[in-house]
Design a protein around this nucleic acid. Sequence first.
RNA 1: GCGCCCGUAGCUCAGUUGGAUAGAGCAUCUGCCUUCUAAGCAGAGGGUCGCCCGUUCGAACCGGGCCGGGCGCGCCA
Length: 553
Amino acid sequence: MRDLKAVIGQALDVSLSKLFPDLSPQPQSNIEIPNDKTHGDLASNLALKACKPLKKSPLEIANQIKNYLTENSKQLGIADYIGKIEVQSPGFINFFCTNKILSETIHEILDKKDNFGKSDIGKSKKVQIEFVSANPTGPLSVAHARQAAVGDSLANIMSFLGFKVVREFYINDEGNQIRILGLSIASRYKELLGQPESFPADGYKGSYIYDLAKQMIESSKPKKIEDIDSNLAEFSEFGASTILKIIKKELEDFKVKFDIWTPQSALTKKGEVTKIVEFLRKKGFIYDKDGAVWFRSTEFGDDKDRVLVKSDGTFTYLTPDIAYHQDKFRRGFDWVINIWGPDHHGYIGRIKAAVQALGRKKEDLSVIIVQLATLFKDGAPVPMSTRAGQYVTLQEVLDEIGPDVSRFFFLMRRVDSHLDFDLSLAKKQSPENPVYYIQYAHARISSIIKKSGKVDFKKADLNLLKEPEELDLVKILAQFPEELEACVKMLDPFNLVSYLQQLAAVFHKFYDTHKVISEDEKLMLARLDLVEATRLVLANGLRLLNVSVPEKM
RNA sequence: GCGCCCGUAGCUCAGUUGGAUAGAGCAUCUGCCUUCUAAGCAGAGGGUCGCCCGUUCGAACCGGGCCGGGCGCGCCA
């Protein structure tokens, strides 16, 4: 269907230029699948676009194009695929397909199997997707979980489409928040040893801090209370590394894999952070003011210039991050994609500025802002705050509802839209749960194929498929590759989720209207081809989302 | 005050280079299992696409101005 669109598009362009050679520039032909079936299988608005420059009525233009296409259908390569062309008011040109395109689609799917939808539009472009990158100061929150689901699924889809994808987790193991983590643990440590003191005001209050303090007491030789304050780094280090292990475990349980874990401290140790300031200074993007070192980010469209080195000599958060981005590009990535929470959207301007200061185009970096997910339990929102230690961790969600349903729920809305995650609904193993709707379609087909005992596909006469429910099914199957491309274009796996729901709906309708297994042997064989193709596409889609594909439910 | 996101059915949301009668799920109501899995299907009700101007053959979509909600605006990370 996608190829057919291209062929028709070209045929339209040719006919327009033959009919009106003086028209310049030529309007772009726009071909889409109409909602209303009486408008054909494909429709073009070319005549409407061309009417203004040509100063003619769109209906007249459309009819001229239609006649040209009909007369030259063989040369234009559309004769076998287009059965009828109609012009409808106010000037749409509607195309009605023949069965040939449908049977070709089914055969293509049955041939390619798991590879249907795979393409090389990525042209082996090297892409890095950095996501989650949570500070190792506490277990992963629901916000991280959504980012993980988005990043992982997007990475799957992009790999499938020919991009060379690397998934990376940036470990923010330096800076203020790590110091506060150490302070928090030390405070609990003293408390457990019977010397309670006031807990730091901005400390992490979660119960896991007690666990960490306990572990330190048990594993290391207990320190003298008076030594603690001079050994804060040890508390920080232990806390960060232990929490990182927890994070890794949570992600593993969520079926999210990373190729590379890059700690900020590694860049610092190599001196990259200091070097990046010198580098930018040499390029002339640096100035000194009020005892601090500033980056002239406004030169690249940022709202204001940014401090890189504070007057006390320490770096701001931005500085190592610039070094990190330089490191990314040095490693040869053509395209760097960062997935961040909404609290970082004000940060986009400065990092894009930095990327340009490093000599890259701003398009080489894409930032996806994933809006927050609010958990609902029994109709009420679950409150969340990391510092107060009052939040549901990814682990708890996983324990309660499992990775399949969780992943799916996190992808059910566009990334830029707030997501209400209804734990009570997700937990239900019932019809209201949309994950089962798709999986159920796959299970039903598996059951039919098993019962039919058929192993040989592609031998049937697919011209026997004439019912509207059958044709609808083939048409939506044909759209799978386009939907995957849309995910990359939008940088959002949502399109795939939405597509799979539609596909399942069309299948369920077909299932309820027509029987596959029947006395009519020839028809049965054709329908078995059709449902097997459907099964393959459902499986491919679910696999890209990392949702399991059950044969029985 | 400035910037970003959002405002579409009772609720949660699709609708993306402007296209034909604005869709889905949930919720409510009515039907469909002696036949491949009823975790399904069919049907009904439900809309001033936040409001007002503008652009044009055509606007939920583009532009301007309001109203309302969320977030960000630090020599924090």
